[in-house]
Amino acid sequence: MNKIKIIEGILISFIVLLIAYTVNETIVIQKNISNNDIGAHEKKPEYHFVVISDDVESYSWTTFISSVNDEAKDKSIVIEIYAINDLNDKSEIEKAFEIAILSKVDGIMMKLTDNDTVRDEILKCNDMGIKVITIGNDSPESNRDAYIGTNKYNLGKISASLLTLQGQQKQDVLLILGSEYKENSGASSNNYLNGIHEEIVQNDLINKLYVEYASEKRADLIVNDSLYKDHIDAIICTDPIDSLRAVKVLIDLNLVGDVDLIASSNLPEIIEYIKKGTIQSSVVEDYEIMGETSVEVLYQLLNDKRQSAYINIPISVINKESLGLVD
């Protein structure tokens, strides 16, 4: 009879486990289904912000928008994203701004390269009483309410200064600008390049500077082609994904140590490469703080609180020294 009791116990335990699994799965499924209907149950947001950006794929964007969404949720703000595919398509920019104005949004966070169309649209927004802030790329001549971002000039200077530390001879440098930098347009690119040039002039250590845009060609292809075509001593990448792609090429071509790499961001993979010596250093723009600050500034502006028109996000450098790996 004890055997029967053991069998009964096993079967009952088994059924209980299966039932628990069923209940758990039902709850998970129910949660998944009800997530689609979240707006119907949760508290309604107080403000409606729109982010208009020409860069919705880069690492900087992903980090930035994630931070924006987190901060917005805390402040009862709903975020809508309008992606601009072609900065040169004036109608696309106008349409994005018009829909935002017609939709009666409370604020616009503009992450676009500055141009005349953008400035005109900012003016229209001003007329409609919609607050506009620029992020990453400033539009200083527009009536934007505030700018939040890093100083691209300083960023360029810092990146170049890291190069000068690598050796005493003049170097041939490949600069790969990420998708947030556009060729022949926008102050960001110019400022960044100016910063680099300033540093080159000051230290007179760079022989040749090759400038390439990742928005036009994949970074790994750029690196590969440049290494075959030209003599390259160092590579500077402004985008973390581009940096990782460049590392892969250097490893494949067995050029680690021969070609220095200045990367971007504090991604764990990049930090790991710095520890190994594959990447010499990395310049970090904190997009997370940029996202938080953007929402906070726009929110404060809507609540009639004065905000600084230029909010600088600090830049930091990661290398073996900062990681405590060098005495």
Binding site: D37, A40, E42, K44, P45, H48, E80, L102, S103
Partner: peptide, 20 residues
């Protein structure tokens, strides 16, 4: 009104655009 649900927000946008 405003909503965290993407579709509901877009429907709200439609309503505002229809107004104009």
């Amino acid at each position: 009104g405003l909503s965290y649900n993407d579709n509901q927000l877009l429907i709200n946008n439609i309503s505002n655009i229809m107004d104009e």
